[in-house]
């Protein structure tokens, strides 16, 4: 349902993505892991055009887009069918939790206000925040803000949701509630592409794991395979360093 081919991206003289290709099937939960600076964020950002790739192809819902030359209309069309969850939540601080969710429905998708409110309340219910609908972001904890952000991303019924280290900015005691929501979302069949440092999530929730290093996919496989028998030495080194970190 989504395929990226030969994605390349550099910033000035720095090549960040060197020919990355990836396939995602309907309902897949794909975890992207890898050291900091390996290009994971840039990869996700290129996929919904927050960053313009130098070259590459995106096959998405039967359409093929040239990521190096995408029209404004194609960008809008792609974004209408994707969701994005940021590391720093990025909730609209002038809007309540409910309005954060309805914004994309009412303004971008021209849904009636009543209907949008109902959809948004249901989404907030799914992330366990029905009682916080009228709160502003500044009145919510980091974990709650990220759950609102997840509700905002999924309320539009996207074909795929991208997550960029959704728990990295959270205090340790708040990580669990966000991972639980993501686990529910995965169980509901949502297609997800998740950059994460949470190895338990990658192992238990995702069905496919991608290891990125230095702007390339160094290794990928089913998550059971990947963690049981990592083929590459650098994958093993990375997994060792992560497990030491978490000890």
């Amino acid at each position: 349902m989504l395929e990226v081919r030969h994605l390349k991206k550099s910033f000035g003289g720095l090549t960040v993505l060197k020919d990355v290709s990836l396939r995602v099937n309907q309902g897949d939960v794909t975890a992207i892991i890898g050291p900091s600076g390996s290009g994971k964020t840039t990869f996700l950002r290129c996929l919904n055009l927050l960053e313009k790739a130098d070259e590459g192809e995106l096959v998405f819902d039967g359409q093929t887009y040239d990521l190096g030359h995408v029209s404004r209309r194609d960008i809008a069309a792609i974004r209408m069918r994707t969701g994005f969850v940021f590391q720093n939540f990025n909730l609209f601080s002038n809007k309540t939790a409910l309005q954060n969710v309805t914004e994309g429905l009412i303004i971008a998708r021209k849904m009636k206000k009543d209907e949008a409110n109902a959809v948004a309340m249901q989404a907030l219910g799914q992330v366990g925040l029905s009682d916080r609908a009228a709160y502003y972001p500044s009145q919510l904890s980091g974990g709650q803000q990220q759950r609102v952000a997840i509700a905002r991303a999924m309320a539009t019924k996207p074909d795929i949701v991208y997550f960029d280290e959704p728990t990295s900015a959270l205090d340790p005691e708040l990580i669990g509630e966000v991972l639980a929501v993501m686990r529910d979302l995965a169980a509901s069949g949502m297609t997800m592409l998740v950059v994460t440092h949470e190895m338990r999530f990658a192992r238990d929730v995702s069905n496919h794991v991608v290891f990125m290093e230095g702007g390339v996919i160094a290794e990928e496989g089913s998550s059971r395979e990947f963690f049981a028998n990592p083929r590459e030495e650098r994958t093993r080194a990375f997994l060792r360093s992560i497990s030491e970190e978490n000890r």
Partner: peptide
């Protein structure tokens, strides 16, 4: 205004 909120707006489908 944080750039992230602008990007979040684009991601929500706003122009």
């Amino acid at each position: 205004v944080p750039v992230g909120q602008i990007e979040a707006g684009y991601c929500a489908g706003l122009n």
